[in-house]
C-alpha cells in the first residue's frame, strides 16, 4: 500500500524533482488554457481573419484543434515526467 514509512526529510534531489515537475505542469497548463479558452473562445474574434474550411481558425480550435493539442500535451507530460523520474532517481524500479 502507500509507502508512508520511508524517510521524511526532503532531500535536495527530491525538492529539485518536485520543482521541475511543477514547472512542467504550469507550462503545459498555459498551453492547455491558450488553445481552449484562448483560441477557442476569448481570442476567437482576433483569429477570425484566418479562414479554415468555410469558417475561421477559432472555430476549428473550439471543435477539433484543442482536443488534438490536449492529446499532445498529455503524452508530452508523460514522456518528460518518466525521464525526470529516472534522472532524479525516483522511478519505480
Amino acid at each position: 500500500m502507500a509507502d508512508t514509512s520511508h524517510s521524511s526529510s526532503l532531500t535536495a534531489e527530491g525538492e529539485a524533482y518536485w520543482k521541475a515537475n511543477l514547472r512542467l505542469i504550469v507550462g503545459c497548463l498555459i498551453v492547455w488554457g491558450i488553445v481552449s479558452f484562448g483560441f477557442g473562445i476569448l481570442l476567437r474574434p482576433l483569429l477570425s481573419g484566418i479562414a479554415v474550411g468555410g469558417t475561421d481558425l477559432g472555430f476549428w480550435f473550439a471543435q477539433q484543434g484543442s482536443i488534438l493539442v490536449f492529446l499532445v500535451l498529455i503524452f508530452f507530460y508523460a514522456f518528460r515526467m518518466n525521464s525526470l523520474d529516472r534522472t532524479h532517481g525516483v522511478d519505480e524500479e
Binding site: M1, L29, W32, I41, Q63, Q64, S66, I67, F70, I74
Partner: peptide
C-alpha cells in the same frame, strides 16, 4: 463546443494533477 473542449480538457487536468499521485497513494 463547450462540451467538446470541456469533456476532453478534463483529461489534461486528470493526467497532470491527479491520476499519478492517487495511483501512488495506492
Amino acid at each position: 463546443s463547450a462540451y467538446l473542449m470541456g469533456w476532453t480538457g478534463g483529461y489534461v487536468l486528470l493526467a497532470l494533477l491527479l491520476a499519478p499521485y492517487l495511483r501512488k497513494f495506492g
